[in-house]
Amino acid sequence: MKKIVFTVVMIIAAVIFILPVIATLALSFWNGGEVSAEGYSDLLFNCFVFYPMFWNSVIYAAVITAVQLVVIIPCAFAFSQAKFKGKGLLFTFYIVLMMMPLQVTVLPNYIGLRDLGLLNTAWGIILPMIFSPFGVVVMHQYMKSTDSAIIEATRLETNSIFRIILTAVVPQLRVCIFAVVLFVFADCWNMVEQPMLFLNDDSLKTMSVFIVNAADYTGHVLFPASVIFIVPVFLLYLFFSDSLEKGLTFGEIS
């Protein structure tokens, strides 16, 4: 009896949460009071600025995610293995940085990019995001639950630190890497403020900016664009969802 009530409540909750998504999908096929795919033809065959923005989003998110992995895996590994004074403090600093709201970090980012002359270039979007501390913190938390015996054993075999990371650490971190890829990709995919503040040229901007400014374009492009916008991240989630369930636990913070 209790189980049935719970199940019903759960299904209702799930429906409520999914409703806006379904509404987005439904509204993309709704045009002037009738069902039609006109919104899609308005978007795909009349709004050519959409395509560069779509590919910009794909490229930015893919590059940021890939390079971030290359940067944070050694970094998290070092945090768990290296011994030096002030390590705890440094890691606390990463946590504090992770907690900083966007409005606080955007200003230093802007100033840093301005001084390096990277405003209004693709690098202005990519570089600061690569060094966002979220991945390091998550990865380090997960690193605590890895088996250090394997790392010790590999250390006897090889002297190269990259070999150790590739053969002993990465396989153990698989699930965590999936999670980080998903979150970082979704985060990059959804960013709006950075492209709006750091970029001037429309040709460099992202699909998220297109959606925010959808009212400027002719036809009912907002909801069709939203549907296309959802697809890549949703596919990524589907791809990783099984692995994520298999265990993503976190040790204590700091």
């Binding site: 998504v21 998220s208 909801f223 664009a225 989630y237």
Partner: peptide
Amino acid sequence: LPMVIPTAG
């Protein structure tokens, strides 16, 4: 899913 839905819509 809501995590990844664009907000504007």
